[in-house]
Design a protein around this nucleic acid. Structure first.
Lengths: 249, 249
DNA sequence: CGTGCCAGGTGCCTT
DNA sequence: AAGGCACTTGGCACG
């Protein structure tokens, strides 16, 4: 049987990391998938269609796609375009395989919210199972990091500023940084690591409104970001708030 | 040469759709990848590390991963967990392959913003090239659809309501629906297809503030959603605004 | 192209 | 679990 001998060959050359199945028989494949789904990433090139129902609802017409199933329950259906999968299911979903009328059926369920995907694979071109690593990513340049840097060096915002609190809670949300300026005024600071848009402005507006209504002293509001959109700047000024260009690194 | 005969075998059985390369020699593979990158989805199982620099910056330690390169320029690096790739590059990025000291180097560049990923593949386990379809997805249950339904049947919000405008522009953003109630009052409606959070309230408050300052008549504000968060409801009421439970379908 | 905003957003963290 | 929010958010529609 060519099917088996090929696998043997592949296992011998690749070790246990990757197994490749060419045009596999769905019935036989299911047994393998059931065994490996909790430990291996399963990658399927197939002619398939898919139905999703949950928070929304969708139909994916029959076509050639790449299906990825991860041991954490993630399901991805990719086509030839876009960073985003056409359909997906997040980690924690429960996947089951079954056979129907020559096709491989893949079902993925999750609860809270209740959502389901059903994929019918009419033709299986290639299936690869692989044990992949995880993690190992370290990221720099987040807003959190920006807050830490400014916290340590408030003069990046202005001379004489002192940071009083980070992630200060208000009924209207969390303030990134709360400070006090050289003249003893309260300073509400909203950070953006990228371009500050108008929603950053209205966050700030609400916070400033809140502190003005509770703190019995002058309150300033500052957006600190490397850039600000034209419209955001306009609204900011209309509310008498300030923008401070802050470029980390 | 086993490498070639295997390919021949695979092409014969799979047709031109999928080509599988087992433990390929990077140098030879590069020629294939260069030819196929504009038409085929390239899937690489490899031991690799990666560096990203752009809006942020990251390092991905050496590990076994799944790399996907799409003809639209998309680059994805997946591991055994999560719906999200560990690293990526969006459509429109420019990919180049090169060889260095036994390794396959993959570089992806984009401009606006300027970002770059460099992947070093130390070991290539399996590489698959496939011509995949695209599109074919139809989605139901979007906010846009919700707006259409309410537009046709405003009594879903309240009796006597008349929709005046959709996507009404204000200096503070776009209002989902603008209506007029039975008593001739202006009604600003903010739609949410899921749970309305405080962010939705912010939006509505701004719009209502704007119309109150310009329209010389009474202005109401309504959030229409299947659900609203506790806090959002609290703030909403504090501003004298309303919530209307609307469940489509 | 920038600006605004929805998304089946996802992921992370806190209550 | 629900809430609040950043994200290399991505994606789209519009001026």
């Amino acid at each position: 049987m060519i099917f088996l001998s090929l696998n043997d060959f592949i296992e011998a050359t690749n070790g246990p990391k990757c197994r490749v199945f060419e045009n596999p028989d769905p019935k036989e494949l299911i047994e393998v998938l059931k065994k490996l789904k909790t430990s291996h990433v399963i990658t399927i090139f197939a002619l398939c269609d898919a139905f999703y129902k949950g928070r929304a609802q969708s139909t994916l017409d029959k076509g050639e796609r790449l299906i990825i199933i991860k041991p954490d329950g993630t399901l991805l259906i990719h086509d030839s375009r876009s960073r985003e999968p056409k359909n997906w299911q997040p980690p924690g979903s429960i996947i089951t395989f079954s056979y129907n009328n020559g096709s491989l059926l893949i079902k993925s369920k999750r609860y809270n919210p209740r959502e389901e995907i059903r994929i019918t694979c009419y033709t299986l071109y290639v299936v690869i199972t692989a044990r992949l690593g995880r993690g190992g990513l370290s990221l720099e340049g987040s807003e959190k990091e920006m807050a830490e840097i400014i916290n340590k060096n408030p003069s990046l915002i202005e001379e004489g500023l002192r940071i009083v609190k980070r992630e200060a809670k208000t009924p209207y949300g969390y303030v990134d940084l709360l400070g006090e300026d050289a003249k003893g005024r309260l300073v509400v600071i909203e950070l953006k690591r990228g371009i500050a848009q108008i929603n950053a402005v209205y966050q700030l507006v609400r916070y400033v409104e809140y502190f003005r209504s509770t703190a019995r002293r002058e309150v300033r509001g500052i957006i600190a970001a490397p850039k600000i959109s034209k419209n955001a700047m306009l609204i900011l000024k209309r509310y008498g708030l300030e923008y401070k260009r802050v470029k980390i690194r």
